[in-house]
Write a protein that binds this DNA or RNA. Structure first.
Lengths: 135, 135
DNA sequence: GCTTGCGTAACTATCTCAGTTACTGGAGAC
DNA sequence: GTCTCCAGTAACTGAGATAGTTACGCAAGC
């Protein structure tokens, strides 16, 4: 897998779960389907559990399942749960006593924040159920 | 310096150049002001020269200066010249014969591309002259 | 021809992040 | 009770990206 795979892995898995919400899935099976490692799956899905999107259980017949109806889980929920930033933030927060640096930081960072808000808003318009259908 | 510093370095430098367009600057001076290395400066500004935004000269009284009036250089020009992607692209281009992966990729990547276009459009509304003034 | 500054290659140092190994502990099967 | 299955987690490894650094060549003035 490559970069930004956490969000892809999470959404891909939830997309499948939305199709058969009652089925309990093991991290090993999820990993095999996604071409990655069970530990990676547990790490990523663990974040979603902390956010209240998933439930996990140990032992025989244990595994992962949705914590609430799939139509109540949006892509934004997942994005936020993973604390992703697909829009780069202006990292130049160095306290530079330079007017140009200030003006630059102000303009760029406010622009990036606006884009970030737009992204979340757009993501919230799609639920994981929508991932079943072809666009 | 930290991440995404190439764009910051470029814009910061051009912002100063917009203030005194006739002054020729050495990469060593620029590097000192930006807290980085002359070679890094030459690398970044070299991309801007290739894009026709800057001119550079060797030897005594050599250095860097704008290739055209500062009011004709927008932040988008710089962004594009550096081939930056502040909006992440959906890297999951793996040909997965999985309907969910397909639906996911389609929705997310089109969203990201739209954001990218919005970013460039917004950046093109600001010239490096505007970096002089406080917002 | 000496100095100055860019151009560039090559190497190093960090940083991030996925992948991996190994172990713990809980929950059901038997 | 214990055995097996599976999640939880810590710790390490490896790959990739990128800034920083060193070194050297070349061009332009003095």
């Amino acid at each position: 897998m490559k970069r930004n795979s956490r969000l892809s892995l999470a959404l891909h898995t939830l997309g499948h779960m939305a199709g058969t919400p009652d089925r309990v899935r093991k991290s090993a099976d999820i990993a095999a389907h996604a071409g990655t490692n069970p530990v990676v799956v547990r790490r990523v899905l663990g974040s979603l559990r902390e956010a209240g999107l998933l439930l996990s259980e140990s032992g025989h017949s244990g595994g992962w399942r949705l914590a609430r109806p799939p139509e109540e889980i949006t892509l934004a929920d997942v994005y936020i749960a993973l604390d992703e930033r697909l829009v780069a933030q202006d990292g130049d927060a160095t306290p530079h006593d330079c007017a140009v640096a200030h003006a630059l930081h102000g303009r760029v960072s406010s622009l990036m924040e606006e884009l970030e808000r737009t992204l979340v808003r757009k993501l919230s318009e799609t639920t994981i159920v929508d991932l079943q259908e072809q666009t």
